[in-house]
Design a protein around this nucleic acid. Structure first.
Length: 441
RNA sequence: GUGGCUGUAGCUCAGUUGGUUAGAGCAUCGGUUUGUGGUACCGAGGGUCGCGGGUUCAAAUCCCGUCAGCCACCCCA
């Protein structure tokens, strides 16, 4: 074993593993293009400030950051969104709206690795910018669903949890918790995992002893919300000021637009309203959603949401935005568990079997022509028995073996052997290329 | 960052209460086979038993440390 190991959390891809990896990318790219998204990319290394500005100092401990030789504080990107927001912001006026972009790229986090979590992972990011209404969410969530379907995953395998930070804010306002709302959402984010006493304690810290019981009841009640009808009844029971009422009604209309849009696409079975999703990061402003593995609780395959203020924060104009990310690590695990990761066999078109060093120059000449002609051709580097070479030919996955023996070359011919059915025919070397073009189409 | 479990060949694993030169299957390479391939047979290469220290006449085996991996927390863009 070598003393030079790869770094923790960084993977090596041998050809077979790389083939599987490229399969993921291929499906990602194919579906995104089908939805009219355009591929872009940004730098892998950015200034540390870019990520600190967006996510806050707390995140810094997980950044893969260091000082470069010019004394700059830099970081490998932990996510693509800040870069995207900056890029779009810089050319916002000249870009056609809505902007539908996607990226497949490596991201980095410096943290302890575990299942589904490495220090270098690849994410599909898909974002729509310049569309403030829920039509963008319909498009993005349907892209997310169709992508997962593209891998053979169905409604028994995953579902989308839909939530809404905006609706949470309106709800908390309507119950009189407006000022503490951001801090309350932080608690809601961890609600499922928190022990009872911890919940009570945190709520008292936030709103004090008096309000905490009512708040507790409100949160538990709102978490039960499973449909637009539930939302309606939640707010119907509350007496709220008229300007707030207008906002709530507008938001309910957005929800109706979103759910009916997904229904029209035939995707209702995949989507569930689940207000427990608020997503940790502060930059989400509206709808948030996650794709969950049905087989394992608490395993998110993808997640995203709306971040309407980020482009402006990155120095651009006001520009609404929504997007999601899907990592390759969890996805590959999910596919492997379900046997949906195809087995890739490398194949070539033609394997040349060369009788001896006498025939070799002629064979090499043909091999080069066939390769120039677009065929993938392989051959044995050293002289070996015919049987041995045919064995190699067969395990190479080639469709045809070309046999360059002394008998054939006397007549300036080669034997074309179909490796599947073992039929042979002879062909003159001058016709070889056109004949193989017919056979291999 | 915290805790638990696990490290023997490329892979999956044997290896007895500590006792000769650490094994098997698969894989790889070579041969049986300079004119015909999925089988078969024969053979070869491949290991500092994760690494370092300790106990012992003797350590893959027992002890300590360390590194790595897995799992659960924490966190999750």
């Amino acid at each position: 074993m070598s003393d030079f190991k790869s770094l923790p959390g960084f993977r090596e891809f041998y050809p077979e593993a790389l083939a599987q990896r490229r399969f993921l990318f291929q499906v990602w790219r194919q579906v995104a293009v089908r939805f009219g998204f355009r591929e872009f990319d940004g730098p892998v290394l950015e200034s540390l400030e870019l990520f600190k500005a967006k996510s806050g100092d707390e995140i810094e401990g997980q950044l893969f950051s260091f000082e470069d030789k010019g004394g700059r504080e830099v970081s490998l990107r932990p996510e693509l969104t800040p870069t995207l927001a900056r890029m779009v912001g810089a050319q916002a006026n000249s870009l056609k709206k809505p902007i539908k972009w996607f990226n497949i790229g490596d991201n980095f986090r410096y943290e302890r690795m575990q299942k589904g979590r490495l220090r270098c992972f690849t994410q599909l990011n898909a974002d729509i910018l310049g569309e403030a209404g829920p039509a963008a969410e319909v498009e993005l969530i349907s892209l997310l669903i169709q992508t997962l379907q593209g891998f053979g995953l169905g409604p028994d395998d995953f579902y989308i949890r839909l939530s809404d930070r905006n609706l949470w804010m309106l709800f908390l306002k309507s119950r009189g918790f407006e000022d503490a709302a951001p801090r309350i959402l932080e608690v809601v984010d961890k609600w499922e995992r928190m022990p009872e006493e911890a919940k009570a304690k945190r709520l008292i810290e936030i709103v004090g002893e008096d309000g905490s019981t009512a708040l507790r009841k409100a949160i538990d009640g709102f978490l039960e919300t499973k449909s637009v009808e539930d939302v309606l009844s939640t707010f119907a029971s509350a007496s709220v000021k008229s300007d707030l009422k207008v906002q709530i009604d507008a938001r309910i209309q957005d929800w109706e637009y979103l759910t009916s849009g997904l229904e029209a696409m035939g995707l209702s079975q995949f989507a569930e309203m689940d207000m427990s999703i608020v997503r940790g990061l502060a930059y989400y402003t509206g709808f948030v959603f996650e794709a969950f593995d049905r087989a394992k609780v608490n395993r998110a395959i993808a997640g995203g949401g709306r971040y309407d203020s980020l482009v402006k924060k990155m120095g651009g104009p006001d520009m609404p935005a929504v997007g999601f990310g899907m990592g390759d690590v969890v996805l590959a695990d999910v596919l492997a568990e379900r046997g949906l990761q195809p087995k890739f066999v490398s194949t070539i078109d033609i394997f040349a079997v060369i009788g001896s060093d006498v025939e070799r120059p002629i064979a090499l000449s043909d091999i080069n022509l066939l390769r120039q002609g677009g065929f993938s051709v392989d051959y044995s580097f050293k002289s070996q028995a015919f049987g041995k070479q045919l064995k190699v030919a067969s395990s190479s996955g080639a469709r045809f073996a070309l046999i360059y023996g002394s008998d054939e070359l006397e007549k300036d011919e080669v034997t074309i052997r179909d490796l599947a059915n073992r039929n042979e025919e002879t062909a003159s070397r001058s016709r070889l290329l056109s004949l193989l073009r017919e056979k291999l189409g």
